[in-house]
Design a protein around this nucleic acid. Sequence first.
DNA 1: ATGAAAGCGCTAACAC
DNA 2: GTGTTAGCGCTTTCAT
Lengths: 340, 340
Amino acid sequence: MSVTIKDVARAAGVSPSTVSRVLSHHPKISPATVRKVREAMEALGYHPNIMAKSLVSKSTQTIGLVLPRSVEEFVNPFFSEVLRGMLACAQSAGYDVLMSSANSRPEELESVNRMILGRRVDGIILMAPRKADPLVDLLLEHDFPFVLLGRSLERSDLLCVNNNNVQAAFDATRHLIAQGHEHIGFVSGPPDMVVSEDRLEGYKRALAEAGLPFRQEWVMTAEMLQAGAFHATSLMMSQPERPTAFVVIDDVIAFGFIRQLYEAGMRVPDDVSVVSFNNIMLSELSNPPISTVDIGIYHLGYTTVQLLIRKLAGETITQPQIVLPHRLIVRGSSARQPDA
Amino acid sequence: MSVTIKDVARAAGVSPSTVSRVLSHHPKISPATVRKVREAMEALGYHPNIMAKSLVSKSTQTIGLVLPRSVEEFVNPFFSEVLRGMLACAQSAGYDVLMSSANSRPEELESVNRMILGRRVDGIILMAPRKADPLVDLLLEHDFPFVLLGRSLERSDLLCVNNNNVQAAFDATRHLIAQGHEHIGFVSGPPDMVVSEDRLEGYKRALAEAGLPFRQEWVMTAEMLQAGAFHATSLMMSQPERPTAFVVIDDVIAFGFIRQLYEAGMRVPDDVSVVSFNNIMLSELSNPPISTVDIGIYHLGYTTVQLLIRKLAGETITQPQIVLPHRLIVRGSSARQPDA
DNA sequence: ATGAAAGCGCTAACAC
DNA sequence: GTGTTAGCGCTTTCAT
């Protein structure tokens, strides 16, 4: 069967504990022995059994990732890019990543429970937390190490990595205002997501700063874009006083929205300007290319895992909230000024 | 600390083995005892320690996923969709998914070695295998259960889940021919991927069947689309005899290619028609919407994991190669016929 | 510097 | 039906 530490010990003519010490780079062990053991390991093709190791050491070198439940979030390229960053960091620190998937809220709780109580992972990453997220409570209750990708509305002492989404939306809106737009709408995402709220807030602030009124009827939700979608968009755009520009919650939604504008006979950017968030790869390849706020998705993922690993290493985290910079990228979808 | 099987045993007034039997739904155990034990578990909030369990049972209830190394493949929405299908199946069968990431080929081998020799996973999924893939050899050598998402060029006895990519490309090309196109180009992906080869083959066959010549100069590679990109595309399109339609290896490449055509002053579909593969969500939202061959990405992922789990359950697999159906979806990018 | 022994939490014979 | 015992492969005192 599989080659164990005993086999190596026998082959090297030492005791199992000595082999174990070589494995863990124990300081006081003679170079000669180290060499002997290393050779034996090499010859036998030894690899430590992680299960046995973590059973006694109580550490799994694995971090758990709680994935978004909704299809929309999951297939959003934002997700794979953030995952890419996470994996890169985890890998470079010698950690593995275990994914927890679930279709419903109770399933999700159960899955996380299994992860932490079953000692499968050392720490957990929570993506896109909701308002009053029960997962946060669960983790807190068990005093289990975790980091939020995003931020908690309720508590400010939790470890988290985030952008300043209020500022990002403020910048995006200001850009449209600077282009001469005075009628600016907003297309939102799921209302229970913290990021939706933050970006709406930034949008409002920019309007206020420019002395422009906030109009509730110019705020669309992603749901409105779905089924009755076309209707809602074309209805809004056929009003005598219609928005000439939109701040859209993210690139994927922007894709769908621009499509609907075209179907309603509106050209981007000629009739309507659009600026969105995330800067996923395809936003540059879109037609027209989409103006968007780059939030450093990869970096976001990387930093989140990094923070968790620091926490797991026992480091005292002086600054629990990490805010990563963003940067507006102007492209074709908001380049020209409307004729109006 | 953590509550163990012993604690439950003590609380329920039985022996640890009895608790273990309740856990594994052992047949001959009195209902009264079951109830007692269940209550004790509930009261103490017991969750089995997976590490200890798999140390003795030699099964981890975890499947390992070897991720694509290249950024391009990773961020391709194809990947997240296939992952979604995999997770759905794994979850419904009570399996977890562990991800192996690596930046280089040697790292990848080392990572897989750790997974299998360290007994971290019960089986492995290999995505998008290359020609003469060393990972396949490694897995075979250790007689470790695995399933290919895609197919092996060299061996036909391996478990794999795939589309008939030759046929899919044949269908796509036929569609363009039926639209009246006689000058049809091809945009390929990485040449060492099996799928690239298969789709090119289908394209050639359709040309041959229609009595159209295959022209090497009308085959572009994804690399050509990168840096010197614009140049290559515009050069080809400025020839007196230029393609009026393209079969493109996948939707993401199609996005980039259409963008370049626009920059070269070509309209899609008015000047050039495009049909690609995968039917990622955004292909429908593109402008124009992209005609594409739906290959059932989610289903592909789901079936792959399903096949692996069947194998792990000891089932004899009579049909090692599963071929999933595809279906051409005609949209705006190939709707009209060129004036030519 | 190294070995012997105990034990992490669980399962699986083997008894009764 | 249920308890007792012996490990799974590893780390970690405690000796020497």
